[in-house]
């Protein structure tokens, strides 16, 4: 019997394996007090790594740093100015 293998068909969502979180030099940090949970950042993030969660009736943005490429789009679009981009430690070089 001939075994037929399916050709170039990929399984869904396999990109998840590729952790792109090490691409960027910066990462976003949210000020939970300022965040209104408006979801602008979530709607814009090109790397699908922001999610607005609800905790004790407070909504706020949570980042998945495994994938965040540090583009800064979320910080730019935030209407509450609740996101700050921080430099990753490894890029903070000390020059003597």
């Amino acid at each position: 019997m001939i075994e037929i293998t399916i050709g170039a068909i990929s399984k869904p969502m396999e990109a998840k394996k590729i952790k792109t979180g090490d691409w960027g030099t910066e990462y976003p940090v949210v000020d939970i007090e300022k965040c209104s949970g408006c979801k602008s950042c979530e709607m814009f993030c090109p790397d699908l790594c922001v999610e607005v969660v609800k905790e004790n009736r407070k909504k706020y943005a949570v980042f998945n740093y495994d994938y965040c490429k540090g583009c800064g789009v979320c910080a730019f679009v935030c209407p509450e100015d609740a996101i700050k981009m921080e430099m990753k430690e490894i890029y903070k070089l000390e020059v003597e």
Partner: peptide, 22 residues
């Protein structure tokens, strides 16, 4: 989002995935 996944290879800040996921 269940329809398009993180880990894709677009440059940081690319507009394509913004359009696609929405």
């Amino acid at each position: 989002m269940k329809y398009f996944s993180a880990g894709h290879g677009a440059c940081p800040g690319c507009g394509l995935p913004i359009a696609v996921k929405n």
